[in-house]
Design a protein around this nucleic acid. Structure first.
Length: 434
RNA sequence: GUGGACGUAGCUCAGCUGGUAGAGUCCCGGAUUGUGAUUCCGGCUGUCGCGGGUUCGAGUCCCGUCGUCCACCCCA
């Protein structure tokens, strides 16, 4: 085989193998239950939208829109884009399906997102997010509830190395005023800015505050703070949120330099970070986007949402050390001899009819008893069902517990549907364990 | 997009200053011709990421390329 002809996976787009799936399924199960408990309903939206939607929602001058989108022209001549984030599609769906009209929507969705970035740990070109959006809620109480939900999620999953950062960006108007002050300040200190920051000065000056360059610390720390330039209503909204978080016993730090990279955010923004994943430390973040819906053509409606990175949370989950072993079957069925092998499948199908709650794995293909026992052991099954020509002669099967000292017994074929659950129940008793 | 490290068997890795590859594990068979651990014996798998160059000779040196990882950047 010529390795040059082996089809490779696309860079940054990963397979999730059976050995890794347990963490994904656990996260999916826990979030599904939690969202239902908080009154959120699932919805599903397309992976592909018109390019214009993302340009208008995320912002023309963001990194995502400028250089990270998978955009193509379809055969009808439309410019389409693989979604780089989830909120725009959900909001578009709410508008085009007529779900607004003063409604209060609590929604969640999940699936793959696409950004053409250089892959590294926790950052892939196809990655997965779980998105939660609350549309039609103006007060700080929904902000607090969303954050409480995420805090509960970490607790439920056993994830501890996370920290909550919050901030308020103010209204779009107050942010514009602050932005001008900031630009004025940085212009006065242009000599001290690095190349990245000079570039941002035009497009997104707030991001300069986020700079990790140590040489920039002096300039950045002298910059006017967003928190000091909030309008009165945003100030009150933010103070209420802080009080509610404190009231719920949720720890947080106010980070006046926390700025989101998407233009649609206003007022509350928050981010859960961890020190366990390296440079890609944000596992869940979001904020309020009161101005987005009218900007996309809907009736003015306040809203807030967040997204969590599935790959990153799953990685944290696997680091917590909680064993996520693949499920072992209850029974491994082995057959040796021509007649037994012919009979085994039919026998097992009857057992599946009678015992739908019991998982049975059948040894497929050939293999001597030694090999079949090895496979049975590896499968993790509690019980081996052994069918040989000798047993068939007498109309019985042998049953051997694989994880306990209890010895091997024989059972008439017609009694298996009764005997197997009885033995499994017996083996499940903790004091019978080896 | 920028910088750095790395790429040898399915997996984890060894291979000193260039002399055409090795261990453990996994898998298969046997000791035990119908019984899973362990032990012992035997066996299978590699165009040393790919392409080019230097050399009598390259896993080893050089260049390019692809990929992974780390950081920048960005963000979930």
């Amino acid at each position: 085989m010529d390795k040059n002809f082996i089809v490779q996976a696309v860079r940054g787009m990963n397979d999730v193998l059976p050995a890794q799936i347990a963490g994904w399924q656990q996260l999916e199960r826990v979030t599904r239950e939690l969202f239902a408990a908080y009154g959120f309903e699932e919805m599903r939206v397309p992976l592909v939208e018109h390019t214009a939607l993302f340009k208008r929602a995320i912002g023309e001058y963001t990194d995502i829109v400028e250089k990270e989108m998978y955009t193509f022209t379809d055969s009808g001549g439309d410019s389409l884009t693989l979604r780089p984030e989830g909120t725009a599609g959900v909001v578009r769906a709410a508008i085009t399906n007529g779900l607004l009209r003063g409604a209060r929507l609590k929604l969640w969705t999940s699936g793959p997102m696409f950004r053409h970035e250089r892959p590294q740990k926790g950052r892939y070109r196809q990655f997965h997010q779980i998105d939660v959006e609350a549309i039609g809620f103006a007060g700080p109480d929904i902000d607090a509830e969303l954050i409480a939900l995420t805090a509960r999620l970490w607790r439920t999953l056993g994830i501890t190395r996370v920290k909550l950062k919050i901030n308020s960006l103010g209204t779009i108007e107050s942010r514009r005023v602050y932005r001008e002050k900031l630009v004025t300040y940085f212009r006065q200190h242009e000599a001290a800015l690095d190349a990245d920051s000079l570039r941002r000065l035009e497009g997104n000056p707030l991001r300069i505050l986020d700079s990790k360059n140590p040489d920039m610390q002096a300039v950045v720390s002298g910059a006017p703070l967003l928190t000091d330039h909030l309008d009165a209503e945003s100030r009150e909204h933010f103070d209420s949120l802080c009080a509610m978080l404190t009231g719920m016993g949720i720890e947080y730090v106010i980070d006046p330099r926390l700025v989101r990279g998407l233009d649609y955010y206003s007022r509350t923004v928050f981010e859960w970070v961890t020190d366990a994943l390296g440079a890609q430390d944000a596992i869940c973040s979001g904020g309020r986007y009161d101005g987005l819906i009218p900007q996309l053509g809907g009736d003015p409606t306040p809203a807030i949402g967040f997204a969590m990175g599935v790959e990153r949370v799953v990685e944290l989950l696997s680091q917590t050390g909680a064993p996520l072993a693949p499920a072992a079957p209850d029974v491994y069925v082995m057959a040796s001899g021509e007649r037994a092998q012919r009979t085994a499948l039919a026998l097992v199908e009857r057992l599946r009819d009678d015992l739908p709650q019991v998982t049975l794995h059948v040894n497929l293909g050939s293999g001597n008893f030694k090999a079949q026992f090895r496979r049975a052991d590896k499968s993790g099954a509690a019980l081996a069902l052994i069918l040989g020509d000798a047993e068939l002669e007498r109309g019985v099967a042998a049953l051997k517990p694989l994880r306990h000292e209890a010895g091997q017994t024989e059972c008439p074929l017609e009694e298996l549907a009764v005997r197997i659950p009885a033995i499994l129940a017996d083996l499940a008793e903790p004091n019978n364990a080896v």
